[in-house]
Design a protein around this nucleic acid. Sequence first.
RNA 1: GGGCGCUUAACUCAGCGGUAGAGUGCCACCUUCACACGGUGGAAGUCGCAGGUUCGAAUCCUGCAGCGCCCACCA
Length: 962
Amino acid sequence: MPHDLPKAYDPTAIEDHWAEYWVRENLFAQPTPKADDPNQGEPFTILLPPPNVTGRLHMGHMLNQTEMDILTRWRRMLGRRALWLPGTDHAGIATQMMVERQLASEGTSREQLGRAAFETRVWEWKRHYGGAILDQMKRLGASVDWSREYFTMDENLSVAVREAFVRLYEQGLIYRGAYIVNWCPRCQTAISDLEVVYDEHKGHLWEIRYPVLDDSGQDSGEYLTVATTRPETMLGDVAVAIHPEDERYKHLHGKKLRLPLMNREIPIILDEWVSREFGTGAVKVTPAHDPNDFALGQRHHLPSINVMDETAHINNEGGPYAGLDRYVARKKIVADLEEQGLLAGIKDHTHNVGHCDRCKTVVEPRFSTQWFLAVNKEPEGGGQSIAAKAIAAVKEEKIRFTPEMYKKTYLNWMENIYDWCISRQLWWGHRIPAWHCAVCHKITVPGPNTNEDPAACSHCGSAEITQETDVLDTWFSSGLLPVSVFGWPKILGAPGLDSETWASKKDRADFDAFYPTSLLVTGFDILFFWVARMIMLGCWFAADIPMPDGSPRSLADSVPFREVYIHALVRDANREKMSKTKGNVIDPIEIVKQYGTDAVRFTLASMASPGTDIAFNIARTEGYRAFANKIWNAARFIFMNVDRAAEIGITVDKTALGQMPTVCEDAPLETRWIVTELHSAAAKVSQSLENYRFDDAANTIYQFFWGSFCDWYLEIVKLRLDFSESADKAKTKAALITLVGVFEAALRLLSPFTPFLTEELWHAVYNGSPPAKSIALTRYPQGHYEGDGGRISLRHNYDASVMEMRVVQSVITALRAHRKDLGVPEKELVPATVYCAEEDGSLTAGYMKDESNRELCNALARVELRLKMERAPAGLKSRTGVGFTVSVAYEAKIDVPAERERLTKDIAKYEKGLAAAERQLGNESFLVKAPAHVVEGLKKQEAETRTLLEKARAALAALPPE
RNA sequence: GGGCGCUUAACUCAGCGGUAGAGUGCCACCUUCACACGGUGGAAGUCGCAGGUUCGAAUCCUGCAGCGCCCACCA
């Protein structure tokens, strides 16, 4: 059957087809293992960091997914039971914002709709627009198990969220309390510390004079001046604090002040926290609007006066300013103070202002009642705190970070962690499973292992209970994913939750098989948000689940993943962060359409060096598109020859493919050489991937395929593919077998990086009837250096064939270069001589004595080569390499000045090298202290350089003058 | 205010103790029967600066300069 491939590789013609095929055939599904199946192999489990349902694919996703796909395909081909599990996150705030925006454009709002209708609306929205990113993933060839796709609000995952909350509450680790939290007035919800991003802001420091009162409560005429960046908060001031040792204010100890504008009497309090150097050394205390002030208020038993509502407008506590927006109020307050002569000054002041991570609104610290997870508290009944476990898991190397420095970052954060505010005043998310009693005002949280909502207050028995309106932080549910995606908590056999089903072995098979996951691949931007939370919650809940054999689970087996690989940021070609506002965002889908998925994947892989940001450069992608085309055309060449061979009855046994090609010792040089190079490349690729060196792996393959296979092997093998009547069919067939075998193995080697192209060509190798449904289901080539089972040692073979090939290559290169020097026309066949004096390199001489090697030179350099076992005569036009000199017989004027320049440059280079080598070798302590192989190497090098120098000098001297 | 990272060929990046590497770009020649998304040959770097350790440093140490990131409640 003739192969018919177009001359240029067109990715668009094949990619959609295979992307669709992989999904349709369900090739990467990893079914729940059967308990009694003995041949399951070690699993390789990896969770996709779930993108927001609202998400669109960006370059960061593509890098992330390319890396995960390479590793997953590679492990799968190594025989591991690979499970890559995809899903999406409901992304509380982000999604709610999208839908609110849509409602606004319709002239309505979520408040007008009401909670239930709004939720319905979000679900509709999700069904309609959500998950686009997963479709984009399919197009990238991500080899995930689509049958296990989840959404964080799916029913079973919601059960896990509820169960986690309930258990933590029961353990006394979740509490509700009124504290200062970060509040976004736009989203109208509390947000966690992590969701606040700080921006430097040029603001002012207003200095305000607070009248000091005398003993009778009248203005004494003296003032205490305070400094503030947020004058509007003074409406809620309850004190002014000074340092107890501050000499300036010692006489004011025990005095009271009149709060301007509000005309409230407030005390002066003493606290060592106050810095005497900053501002005026006197701090207004507003416990309801500043975390420091809140702490002060607690220490000094001061009340909190909340002067703002949830939209950051002044409330009724703000007297005349009630109803004003915080910034309008600020302006008015400053003006009023000035009018009253109480404004002592305004200074420029640059400080960090917190913004909402989502909507960039300035965050307002706000006193409110929220739910918290006590991460540093030991549970009731004893044991380590959540954070302590999460620290131990990493410190004790139960979880390994790559690059290693993130271990430090992680530990530093975890060791300084505060309680986590887990409640959000949103409508979209997991509603907190707690009920408030209208009668006794106490909280009822249902017990563990039940899905039933409480019917009455557990304290007073009243039926007048209503569920908490707050929902949980999105990261609370995504933090549970490593356990929840495998069925937790249903795997424990919980009473009240259909225990018979849940207790069965079948239902915990997934968990037993796949937890802990093998690896997490993600960006550093969610190290704390997600990675840390998974470690906290994973270690916590998995610890309670016995091992399959019933024994207790150790920390090592409780971790959510054993390794974390943190990749860098994808920046634009100028190393700028991609952002919509800068307009430098590269859309991966566009790039993929233009250059092909494989080329973009290869670009990302080849630049993915751990710890370094990627400056995405289109020029690289162009280069790798060319690489794809190169592979394509190598295939065309091979298929063409296979077809030609078939015409004269030479066929290649396809059943022998699918393995590593082997060689006989009497095989031609290029055969021994290319097979050993393949082994070498395969070994290097695996080693590189083992260490997350995607760049090294990609470069090794590139170099092997283009530099070795195409540039040299294919050119030589053309000489062997003789289809004429007189040809030795056995030799032709042997060459063809190696050609096809190495190519087929190279396709497998390439396939994790370029899955589309290799899938297409692999099917073509088998004429459309391949031994498996996909190249992804074949075995990955593994390089072996050492002989096994009494076969030839490939290590030995590698050294011998590679050294021999190197000599042949350098003779050919020298001949070609010399031809250029002489201006020999490209096609012209010319006589030439290679001089190999034994004393200049016996190895080289030995290889050149081999007639077949000289024939290679003849063919690839288009010469007729004679061998002379002596040094080239002085004055001969020539080129010199290590151990040999070549000279092409061609009567032509050589460009004497150019030749002189070249030789002069060479001589300078050799002299420099020789001088350096002699200096070292003349150094007594070098000879004594340096390792023997280094000294030996240098001696050899010195001898070679000396010979090269002598020859170059001779050649220069022999040049005609002028 | 702490902590971390980066500075190597025109560009984007590897190398991290033994005489500087890759891809792209550049120059010259070649429309050779797999590929011009190609072939062949070639030019191109005092490895940010200054000290130190070492027989030997782009590679280890110290300091400096520039760029960037993370963390932090100074009003």
